[in-house]
């Protein structure tokens, strides 16, 4: 099938087991622990399988925390961030690496600078700016901040993808009389599909897991996102392990469902989709 078939001498099966263990082991552990009693969770000798199954942790989570509110806030922020990021990054990548407008080198360098800035440095001045434009304590403000971090990354990510689309295609399109807009949307964009998929995944997950800015710029409990809700469970003086495990499971679950349902669009499907153009 691929060049890697030549590597069959390398025990691929062993590597698969290893990667499965590394990636899924801790997650397995969290999931089964979420179904244990608080006593069993912290037992000195860990039990690989719950001795008594209980959904007590989950029902406590739903009763004592506004989980559904956190969930819908997180979904709003993640979706908003994703849509805006993809739009901004595609536009920027196309302008910089395809149209190569005068000064693109410099602008690309500027975009790069975005990654050198330690996020902590920006917290206080950014708070003032968001406050001035009325976006403090609002999900829109959080989306805006997320996008400022995800869009430059995705622009860079798309660079490789956009450049691997042969430029001859543009020229052929131009000969056919297609304008720049049409060339971008109809010809080049579909060929970049794998890159777009990655950008979607990246920005969604970034927004889904973002913690530092969400604690700083969202003050109202009704607007908190899942990581903040989870961090609150950990608590200052005490850790309620059962709640933490249940909270973690519920935080992973929505993205897992998303990946199961839409995974083929993200990865495999988009690649085939691109080929049909």
């Amino acid at each position: 099938m691929t060049w890697s078939s030549g590597l069959r001498r390398v025990p691929a099966g062993l590597t698969m087991v290893l990667i499965t263990l590394i990636a899924l082991g801790p997650i397995y552990w969290v999931v089964v622990s979420a179904f244990k009693t608080p006593q069993e969770i912290i037992r000195p000798t860990p039990t690989l399988w719950p001795q008594t199954w209980t959904t007590h942790n989950f029902s406590r989570l739903l009763e004592t925390t506004p989980y559904t509110t956190y969930l819908s806030n997180s979904l709003l922020v993640a979706l908003g961030t994703t849509v805006l990021t993809v739009v901004l990054a595609v536009c920027a990548a196309y302008g910089l690496y395809r149209l190569e407008v005068p000064g693109s080198g410099m602008i690309a360098g500027l975009i790069l600078v975005a990654f050198m800035i330690p996020g902590t440095l920006l917290i206080v001045p950014l708070y003032g700016i968001l406050s001035d434009i009325g976006l403090i304590n609002s999900l829109a403000g959080l989306i805006l901040v997320n996008v400022a971090f995800t869009a430059p990354f995705c622009t860079w990510l798309l660079r490789g993808f956009i450049m691997s689309v042969p430029k001859e295609i543009d020229e052929a399109a131009a000969i056919d009389g297609a304008g720049p807009v049409r060339t971008m949307f109809q010809i080049v964009l579909p060929l970049m599909a794998p890159g777009l998929a990655t950008a979607v995944v990246y920005s969604f997950v970034f927004a889904w897991t973002e913690y530092v800015y969400a604690t700083q710029f969202i003050l109202d409990d009704r607007l908190h996102t899942l990581p903040i809700g989870l961090s609150a469970i950990v608590g200052q003086y005490t850790i309620d392990w059962g709640l933490v495990m249940a909270g973690t499971v519920f935080t992973i679950l929505p993205t897992l469902i998303l990946f199961i349902v839409a995974g083929r669009y993200f990865v495999g499907g988009l690649i085939t989709g691109a080929n049909k153009t």
């Binding site: 304590n137 609002s138 969202i218």
Partner: peptide
């Protein structure tokens, strides 16, 4: 989305 979110939490 942005404007809808902006309305929250004032």
């Amino acid at each position: 989305v942005l404007s809808a979110c902006g309305a929250d939490g004032d």
